[in-house]
Amino acid sequence: MIIQVNTDNHIQGKEELNTYVNNLFNEKLQRFDSYLTRIEVHLSDENGGGKAGADDKKCNIEARLENLDPIFISSQSDDISKALHDGLAKIKRAIEHQLDKVKN
């Protein structure tokens, strides 16, 4: 499974964040490894780096499963870590749902 992390110019610590996201997703989605070909994670700060705002941190995740349509989710929060973890939980549920549909 390939995990690609993209950030906008307002997200700090891109190398550390990239390593963290790769490790987190590999751990949490390991059981789907044989089905997943690619995960794309897009992190952004909608208001820009210096401005605070409600739910201004956004996490979009696209999961590509072998021989199936891609799955896309979006999550927003006032904290990038929370948006990321909420997005991971959503994509995990969506992958489970998609694979259950295929099996039945």
Rank of each mutant, 00 (worst) to 15 (best):
Y20N: 12
Y20M: 15
V21W: 03
V21H: 05
V21P: 04
N22K: 15
N22M: 11
N22L: 13
N23L: 15
N23V: 11
L24C: 04
L24E: 12
F25H: 08
N26K: 13
N26C: 02
N26G: 00
N26P: 02
N26T: 03
K28N: 12
L29D: 06
L29W: 11
L29K: 08
L29R: 02
Q30I: 08
R31D: 09
R31W: 04
F32L: 12
D33N: 11
D33G: 08
S34H: 11
L36C: 07
L36P: 00
L36H: 05
T37M: 11
T37N: 12
R38M: 15
E40F: 11
E40I: 14
E40D: 15
V41G: 01
V41Y: 06
L43M: 03
L43V: 00
L43I: 01
S44F: 02
S44Y: 02
S44V: 06
D45C: 08
D45R: 09
E46Q: 13
E46M: 13
N47C: 02
G48T: 12
G49A: 14
G50W: 10
G50R: 12
G50I: 10
G50V: 06
G50T: 08
K51Q: 12
A52V: 07
A52N: 08
A52R: 08
G53L: 02
G53F: 08
D55F: 01
D55H: 09
D56V: 06
D56R: 07
K57N: 02
K57P: 00
K58I: 15
K58Y: 03
C59D: 04
C59W: 01
C59L: 10
C59T: 07
N60Y: 02
N60C: 10
I61G: 05
I61H: 09
E62M: 14
A63Q: 10
L65Q: 06
L65G: 05
E66C: 00
E66S: 09
E66P: 07
E66L: 09
N67R: 11
N67Y: 07
L68A: 13
L68M: 15
D69H: 14
P70T: 09
P70R: 10
P70A: 13
P70D: 13
I71W: 08
I71D: 10
I71T: 09
F72A: 09
I73H: 04
S74P: 00
S75Y: 07
Q76A: 09
S77E: 07
S77D: 12
D78W: 05
D78L: 00
D79H: 04
D79G: 05
D79A: 00
S81N: 11
S81Q: 03
K82A: 10
A83Y: 00
L84A: 03
L84I: 01
D86K: 13
L88D: 03
I91D: 04
I91A: 05
